[in-house]
Design a binder for these strands. Structure first.
Length: 616
DNA sequence: TCCGGAAGCA
DNA sequence: TGCTTCCGGA
């Protein structure tokens, strides 16, 4: 699926030019963002709490402003909130339960899929952590290697930076919202900034005029703000240097609800939205309104890495489907930091591309990710909730941990055939067809990675950062073996794959044979792959024990036949220690000639096993 | 305070 | 389609 086809993300206009030509109606959620962006309204509405969460401090005032903007003097918070509630189904917003007037944007699709190379940029602009990312350096056409069909289908949208254009906002009085005088809905910022929609001035000049004075172009084009990220929100990491992703001083930041380069916010791509094929078609703004049309982002692995990391972080933050994970070949991104777990083991594991089970070759191995996911059904709508028994299951969008089940279920391919197990211990992994675009985002990610002892497929962190998958041996490992904590073998770095990729990219394909490693023992029918070392030792040991017994028996017979010629074994009698094969040399000590032969074979076998293990 | 159905408007 | 308006209910 990693075709070389490049996805072209194009801007979509958030306003409604189709409603009435030229009227450019603003949408409520965009208006909310606009208010959130402006410091002037921080006493009315402001980011608060979690990422994307905002609180309406003054509902009446917000409603009033909205009414002014929409020329609805009768607007009130009740009506406004009704409009906001319609966003629930569209997944644009959701209510923060228990907090009055507090809502939360779903920036998953809104930003991270559709706003590559976002810039948190909060430090310089006083935007709190809850503020959404700031798109940075994205032209109207962003070309990006698609990772999933849904990604390909995602239109590009741009999110205005809360705070970035506060200078503009400062110039604007509160009454900057429309007075409805011209029949159109807006006194847009661009217009108020002296930039008319038809302004043909170069875009860079236009945007330069609108930039926050404190924000240099460096900061403006910074990718994933250089300032240290709050714990658990390492977007780009503290060491992420300021990075220019667009060489031109063209700010992609929308600054106005005008069509064109400014104020370009489209509804997030969501199954609840109109996911008609037409919605996937690139929106082509009027050339006069899109000075940046045609500016292409040039792919850069570093940018990709940062983008992927931020995206991954948000996937975790928003409990999104692993499908929302983006990963691209040969791009390894740092692990996101789980707020509730800190670095955990993943940090030490080093770079490792976040994967989700459906993707690509990695889709066959859900355990490649340091996180295990339980994909849950989407939150049910009220209708659906009411139609179901009051179990509450599947509604709470939370990351939970749960025990993991038998290794057999994880080792099988059942993970790709739906809900593996919905009760109790076995892994709760629901995998949906990747082609099911409609169901995208209809799952939630639940981290069930707390327990790592259910299945033996997780090896200690790979030296390159990735967990080394140990192929399971269905039908090969007997029950006794299964009960054991199968030896976890750190995978050796593979040549050819870049650092951090290693077996992670090889996934289950990294069979020993393909790696030029040992063949399975003869007792491993059906193409046994890399049997855990301990198990192999055990088998070999049993085999050798049998051979040894036979040899001993033969030796006894021989001894009895040669009774009259006692042979004094000169070797000191040693206790057969390390019968697990660690010191096979000692096994030869008390043995006779035949036994010595057997022991030497055992030695060779052990040596061979060691070699195999090294490559496993 | 919040929710969501229903009808209507542009 | 995206609200706006109204309203009953939790």
């Amino acid at each position: 699926m990693h075709t070389p086809v490049m996805a072209s993300f194009t801007l979509k206009w958030a306003y409604k030019p189709e409603s009435s030509p030229g009227s450019r109606q603003i949408q409520l959620w965009h208006f909310i963002l606009e208010l959130l962006r402006k410091e002037e309204y921080h006493d009315v509405i402001a980011w608060q709490g979690d990422y994307g969460e905002f609180v309406i401090k003054d509902p009446d005032e917000v409603a009033r402003l909205w009414g002014v903007r929409k020329c609805k003097p009768q607007m009130n918070y009740d009506k406004l909130s009704r409009a906001l509630r319609y966003y629930y189904n569209k997944r644009i917003l959701h209510k923060t339960k228990g907090k009055r007037f507090t809502y939360k944007f779903n920036f998953n699709k809104l930003v991270l899929v559709n706003y590559p190379f976002i810039d948190m940029g909060s430090a310089g602009s006083g935007v709190p952590q809850s503020a959404p990312p700031v798109p940075s350096g994205v032209g109207t056409h962003f070309r990006f290697p698609p990772s999933t069909p849904s990604d390909v289908l995602s239109p590009s949208e741009e999110l205005r930076s809360p705070g970035v254009f506060s200078a503009v906002a400062r110039r604007m009085a509160r009454g900057s919202v429309s007075d409805c005088s011209d029949g159109t809905s807006t006194n847009s910022e661009l217009e108020e900034a002296g930039v008319a929609a038809g302004d043909d001035r170069p875009a860079d000049r236009v945007f330069r005029n609108l930039l926050h004075p404190r924000l240099s172009h460096d900061s403006l084009f910074r990718v994933y703000g250089a300032p240290p990220n709050p714990p658990g929100l390492s977007r780009g990491g503290p060491h992420a240097p300021p990075h220019r992703v667009h060489p031109e001083p063209l700010s992609p930041f929308p600054v106005s609800p005008l069509p064109g380069p400014g104020g370009l916010l489209a509804p997030p791509l969501s199954p609840a939205l109109s996911m008609t094929p037409t919605s996937h078609l690139p929106y082509t703004p009027s050339p006069s309104l899109s000075p940046m049309l045609g500016s292409h982002f040039s792919f850069n692995p570093e940018d990709m890495k940062r983008y992927l990391q931020a995206h991954t972080q948000s996937v975790y933050n928003y409990h999104l489907s692993p499908r929302a994970f983006l990963h691209y070949p040969n791009i390894v991104i740092p692990q996101p930091q789980r707020p509730d777990k800190g670095l955990g083991g993943s940090a030490a594991a080093g770079p490792h591309p976040p994967t989700h089970p459906l993707h690509h070759h990695q889709s066959e191995e859900p355990h490649l990710s340091p996180f295990k996911f339980k994909l849950q059904p989407p939150p049910l709508g009220r209708k659906q909730r009411e139609g179901l028994p009051a179990s509450g299951a599947g509604h709470t969008p939370s990351i939970t941990t749960s025990g993991l089940g038998s290794s057999s279920s994880q080792c099988s391919n059942s993970a790709s055939s739906g809900l593996v197990n919905s009760s109790g211990g076995p892994p709760k992994i629901k995998v949906e067809p990747i082609s099911d675009v409609e169901s995208e985002e209809e799952v939630e990610v639940t981290d069930i990675s707390e327990e790592d002892d259910n299945c033996d497929v997780f090896a200690p962190p790979h030296s390159n950062g990735g967990p080394a998958p140990l192929p399971c041996n269905d039908g090969i490992v007997d029950d006794d073996d299964l009960e054991e904590d199968v030896f976890k073998t750190p995978a050796a770095p593979t040549s050819g794959a870049g650092p951090g990729l290693g077996l992670a990219l090889l996934g289950l394909k990294a069979e020993p044979r393909e790696l030029g490693l040992g063949q399975g023992p003869p007792s491993s029918p059906g193409g046994t792959r890399c049997i855990p070392l301990k198990l192999r030792f055990k088998r070999r040991w049993s085999e050798d024990q049998r051979m040894e017994a036979e040899a001993e028996e033969a030796e006894d017979k021989k001894s009895r036949a040669e009774k009259e010629e006692p042979v004094q074994e000169a070797e000191p009698k040693r206790v057969e220690e390390n019968r697990d094969g660690k010191s096979p040399v000692s096994l030869a000590a008390p043995l006779g000639t035949g036994q010595r032969r057997v022991s030497s074979e055992l030695q060779r076998a052990t040596a061979q096993l060691s070699l195999e293990n090294n490559g496993c």
